[in-house]
Structure formats: C-alpha cells, structure tokens
Design a protein around this nucleic acid. Structure first.
Lengths: 246, 246
DNA sequence: AAGTGGTCTAGACCACTAC
DNA sequence: TAGTGGTCTAGACCACTTC
C-alpha cells in the first residue's frame, strides 16, 4: 500500500489494538501526527476519518479525538462473501447447491435487479456450513447476464465471490441489506436442522457492481446461535436504518 | 446550515430524490459541481463523500460517480431514539415503563458500561408502541451516574433521549449494536402479545457520550413484522460486521 | 488524448474545548 | 488564552476510464 493516509490509518489501528492508545484515551493531535509522519494535515485527516467511520475513534470540535474501541477493522468483502468472512474468523466454510433452476423474474425481483418484467434469472438454493454445521440457507436470484457463469460453478463451490471474480472479473462493490426475524418454514427447518417455527435471522440483500448494476438478490436465513451482526455507528456515520413496515 | 459542503450534499440528495439524477445515471463531475456552487473541489468532495457513506452514490477512479439509490438519508438520532425515528416515518411512538429498579452491575454489564464490578446501575423494563401496537420490549441498564435523572422521568415518557438532553444536557453520540434472532420467552410473549417461542429480532446495544463514556446498555426485542433494519454499504464504507459465536 | 476521481500540499480562518 | 478539530481554498500530480 503506497497511500500515505492508509499507512497512517493502519499505524493508528495497530497502536490502538496493542494498547498504546487504550479505550478512553486521547489520540495525538492532527498537527502532531502530521509532523510525526511527515505529511500535511489533510492527509492525517483522511487517515483518522477512516477510523472514525469504523467507529474506533470519536471526535468533537475543540477536543482531541477519543479512542472508542479496539475492535479490528471490518471489510465489505467479509460481509459479502461468506467464505472470506468465515476464514477470516478462523472457521471453515462449506457450501452446497441444493437446487438450481432458470426462471423468469417476478415483479419484485425485476425491480430489484433492474430487469424488464419477466426477464431471465437463475434461482439457486444453497446451504452454507460453518465448521461442518449448517449455518444459513441462501435463496439467491441472479440476473440473467451472469447466470451462465454461475451455473457453471461446481455444486460445492466454497466461495462464489472468488470464483466469479477469477472466471469473469466480476466485482461486487455495493450492497443493501434488510434484516429481520422470521419463523422457520418446512424447508428451512429440514435444511438447517431446527424445529419448525423456531426463530431465524433473515437478511434480504441485493448486491451490485461498482457501476451500480445489480448482480443478485438473496434471502438468507441464519440459524440462531450461529452468527451475530454488529453495527457500530456515530453521530457522523450513519450506516443503519430502522424501517417500519406498512 | 451555513456549511457549504452540507448545503451541496443536501442539494444533491434532493436532485437525486426527485429524479433529476435517476438511479444508474452519472453525477456531474467534481469540477462542474465546484463551478456551479462557486466552491473549491475540496468542498465538493466533502459533499459527495457524505452521499457515498450513505450508499446513495458509488464511485470509481477515472469514471463519473453513479447514482445507486434514491433513498432518503439516515440519522444516528433516528437509530438511537425510538421516538425520533417513529415520528420521522409518520408513525406515533408511545412508551411505558413497566419496571424500574436500582441494582448492582454483573460482570458483563460492568464491562460494557466501564463500571467497577458491582457498581450501581438502574434497570428499566420499557414497552414501546408504534401507532398504539406493541413494537418492542427494552431491557435497559443505565450507569449509576445517570440513574437519578432517568428515574425522575415520567413513566410514559415518549422520548427518553430528548428528555435527558433537555434536563441534563446529555448527548448520545456513539453506539454499538449486535443483531440476532431469539425465541420469545414468557415475559416477552405476554408483553408483546405474541406466542411463546415465536421469533423476535434482538438488538443488544451500548450507547456512549461524545467523549466515549458508556451511558446505557440494552437488550431490545422487536415484534416480527413491525420493524426492519437496513444496512447499505460499499467497498469503501464498512458499517456492518458478521460475527460467529464461540 | 482528454476527462475524471484519488491523493497530497500548504496555507487560512473559525468554533469550540480545556485550563 | 492557547490548543484542537471543522471548514475551505487553490493549486499539483497521478491512476484510471472513456473515446
């Protein structure tokens, strides 16, 4: 990484992580950091604002920045790719395609994927495991233009994200996630090994390319006790919205 | 608002919202926006990076920014305060304290609130309603130093956040939220009017002041079908983490 | 080749905090 | 009152996309 602001951010993350800046303590001033790293104040501000977006430090005009958390940094890749996330946490991911069939988009799917009504899609039902235990059931709908490549993947493909990137150069860059809780249906309970009606964490998501072109939309159901989602936010960074249903 | 970059961001949000920049279209270049608003490029970049953090636009080096979504902006205040959030969406919030009792922090609570083991806390059980319907059950633990002020609030206080601000000047600035799904227990089901064992969305959160001092930690359980959480993210902005349980 | 966003500099002034 | 972060300017060069 040759970018100075990213180097400085990484140095600060390390210093916070190993206790040189404990939670509750004040960070050096921007001027001090600029002098220490031999850069301008603007570059230092780029670095600390990254930490602020990650929720690791807080700031108030007139006072020094405060360390809020020592937690490691997050990554979109980890959120998007089950396999990358699992390996990053020291777990072993697994995947198995249970069903895969071409079809036509219904009204909602067409809107989410920005396809014409009745456009071609590929529906895939995939079971994901964590250390050998069923963790979530994915019902994914892929837009027609990527369907052929997805259909060619092996059934036990561990990381769809990585395979698609290597085969087609496709990059996932943006995502929208809706989180709620539902009761396990018949298929959910059979596939995940839980009782019918037991609580599942549902995440409905749509992912797009860097250009904003939708690639897939999915309904993921997590077995309780296997996974927790965490959001860290501040007055300045507002990643999460709570929405009421109609 | 006298800040130029915030004015420009708001103008862009409006333009995107009313269709002058449809989803998928390109935004004007930074140079054009700077000229149009009579500011430097740096100020324009502050404005568009706010939209990027909100997930409304995407960007790639060398190409113009792309509109990803027309959704309105989000706010930490809305996430933190049930009442503010509800009113913003045109709903009527209600609140009722069911139980309130002083106590001593157990190990986990002491750690979350940065109190000594056995430190004084105030435990409050509160039912929140949306348009008259039970929406969530809050089990909140307040740090001792704010407990007196909380205990003085009326039982049917609509917005705890706002009342505490007006009475003590306390501001909530940072939060960490852990989201999963659980089955309704006996008390949950009675208070929320759902069957025992039915799925609830659980959010465990800790909130701190701008200085990073923890104020409260809470276990909130949402009735299914009443509320959805939404996260929008990008390669660049990483608000959400998925964590496996031990 | 021209345009665009990403990075970086070296200043300036202001609002707010801490003492 | 001195220090600090928030805002803003007016440049510069580079990597990348688009044509």
């Amino acid at each position: 990484m040759t970018r100075r602001h990213e180097q400085i951010a990484e140095a600060l993350r390390t210093a916070i992580g190993d206790g040189r800046h404990p939670v509750g303590s004040a960070l050096p001033s921007e001027a001090e950091l600029a002098a220490a790293h031999g850069v301008s104040r603007g570059t230092v501000r780029q670095a600390v604002s990254a930490l602020e977006a990650e929720g690791m430090v807080g700031s108030r005009q007139g006072a020094r920045r405060v360390v809020l958390s020592t937690a490691p940094s997050q990554s979109f890749a980890e959120l998007r790719s089950f396999a990358q996330w699992a390996r990053g946490g020291g777990h072993t991911p697994g995947g198995l395609v249970l069903e895969s069939a071409p079809g036509r988009a219904d009204g909602e799917e067409a809107a989410l994927l920005q396809l014409p009504p009745g456009g071609e899609v590929l529906r895939v039902l995939r079971l994901r495991t964590l250390d050998g235990e069923p963790a979530l059931l994915e019902r994914t709908v892929y837009a027609g233009w990527i369907a052929t490549s997805v259909a060619e993947l092996p059934d036990d493909c561990e990381s769809v994200t990585q395979e698609l990137y290597e085969r087609t150069g496709l990059v996932f860059a943006h995502g929208e996630h809706h989180i709620d809780a539902v009761a396990a249906g018949t298929e959910d309970s059979r596939r995940l090994g839980v009782r019918r009606g037991s609580p599942l964490l549902r995440v409905r998501r749509t992912t797009t390319t860097p250009e904003g072109r939708p690639v897939e939309t999915s309904d993921d159901r997590y077995r309780p006790g296997s996974v927790v989602f965490t959001v860290r936010n501040s007055t300045r960074t507002n990643p999460l919205v709570r929405s009421a249903l109609a």
